[in-house]
Nucleic acid binder design. Structure first.
Lengths: 267, 267
DNA sequence: TGACCCACGTGGAGGA
DNA sequence: TCCTCCACGTGGGTCA
């Protein structure tokens, strides 16, 4: 199974048609692979070139294979064997693999900002690592901001030093024309038809009023009349309101439930 | 420049020490490269093994190089040339390059969630592309949400179909003990000491009340008394308020200026 | 056993 | 000139 280097050289030139480096394999990346469509057409072109190469090989011969062994005859042009050798299949599969990798790397390159036009693959991966870490950090920061904002709303209630009494209860009373009524030490809440009245007496907390009106406006609850009274040093606050809601009472129920749960942890 | 395949085989085994496949080059990725520290130690080990290989080569000889040409003597063990051939340097550089690429790909793999433990490099890059697109979309969505929220606050004023009159003016009147006073067709605003009263008559807009209380609470303006009256179909709204501010009147001024500018585009 | 993946060494192109 | 990068074909390990 001896084989000369000259033969090896010849095989190489024969397989590659002498244009291995100046051919599409080397030049496609830097020029055409920027556009996905071009990638497609290019790979088809490459495929065609490959086919012609194979055909040329098949016609001119010179390479035969016996159970995976490369067997080269020195007398070129004879001993034509049209079976694609396993070596050739192997080489072709590897070419495909590399092409795919190249294509994915190019896609990656397009996704990374501030990357030079011509950049080697290691740098692409390197910058990708950095960029993903940056994106993750930014995302975490934004999510944290969002969470903090929600938390500050929540804390507006939970920081109350005088929490509402736990023994709040729901009363259904038709006698007073109130369909539903909740009350506790600090809150009364009545629903009548598509309107409701509530009165909250509470210590002053940051964002208290903003939160109350935010929840109501978010749930399309219209204020008909509201009266807000705070004592002079702004330690305590009373909110009376008469509201209407066009959709259904669940919004109001949700509102008051939110208030209760964020205050006492019970419904 | 002829060379037999047997020689080539011999050189290969000689260079790789016969353990190319069972050695660290093939086994390190699947087992140890998960930990960055292990990567470091492993690569150092590999480096050491390389060095010993080189030393062995240098001592036992068999490979010489002349200006980049691979020159193999058949009589092994003789003609010892300790110079590292350019081919060898080339191979070593490529090894380093591949090692770096492998290392970066492993780092990348660690950053991509829901990726199998054993996964080929093409898939790593492929999933990275998907993941970056996902991250970018999520980021855009969050940023958009943030922007929309700010915009909805702003629109609460600018969507007014009945803008305030442009001829609002500032009046300084000590006679009435009001230090500063603005008024327009729809707004009156008075400052007296560290307190102020204002009255706004406006059409109902989304987030109107939330915005007003948000701006006040943001600027540490305490509500002493507020009265909100809306007509039944909630088309118009009157807000009366008596507020106090501990710091300085610029906050109130800013508040009312914000109201004017976002409504009429003038101060 | 064939498909797949990886690491290897090598030739060539391009830039410093 | 040397160095870096890429694509190549190949040997070998792994898994269904």
């Amino acid at each position: 199974m001896a084989m000369t280097l000259d033969d090896d050289q010849w095989i190489h030139e024969f397989f590659m048609g002498g244009n291995q480096s100046s051919g599409p394999f080397n030049s496609d990346k830097s020029d055409e692979n920027k556009e996905p469509l071009d990638i497609e057409s290019m790979s088809q072109n490459v495929e065609k070139e490959e086919e012609t190469l194979v055909n040329k090989k098949q016609c001119e011969g010179g390479v035969t294979s016996e159970s995976g062994n490369l067997n080269v005859k020195n007398d070129k042009g004879k001993d034509i064997n049209c079976r694609i050798s396993s070596h050739e299949k192997h080489a072709r599969a590897e070419r495909e693999r590399r092409k795919k990798m190249r294509s994915m790397l190019d896609s990656l390159q397009d996704l990374i900002p501030h990357l030079a036009y011509k950049v080697d693959s290691v740098t692409i991966v390197e910058e990708t690592v950095k960029h993903i870490e940056y994106l993750k950090q930014t995302l975490e920061k934004l999510k944290l901001q969002k969470k903090e904002k929600l938390k500050s709303f929540s804390e507006a209630f939970t920081s109350d030093q005088r929490p509402f009494s736990l023994n709040s209860q729901m009363v259904t009373s038709n006698a007073l024309a109130f369909q539903q009524m909740w009350f506790s030490q600090n809150v009364t809440f009545n629903i009548c038809g598509d309107e409701a009245q509530f009165c909250i007496y509470t210590t002053k907390k940051p964002s208290l009023l903003t939160t109350i009106f935010y929840v109501m406006e978010k749930h399309k609850i219209d204020v008909i009349h509201a009266n807000i009274l705070c004592n002079n040093n702004a330690k305590s606050c009373m909110i009376q309101a008469h509201v209407s809601f066009k959709f259904n009472s669940h919004f109001i129920v949700h509102f008051v439930f939110l208030y209760y749960t964020s205050t006492c942890g019970v419904i």
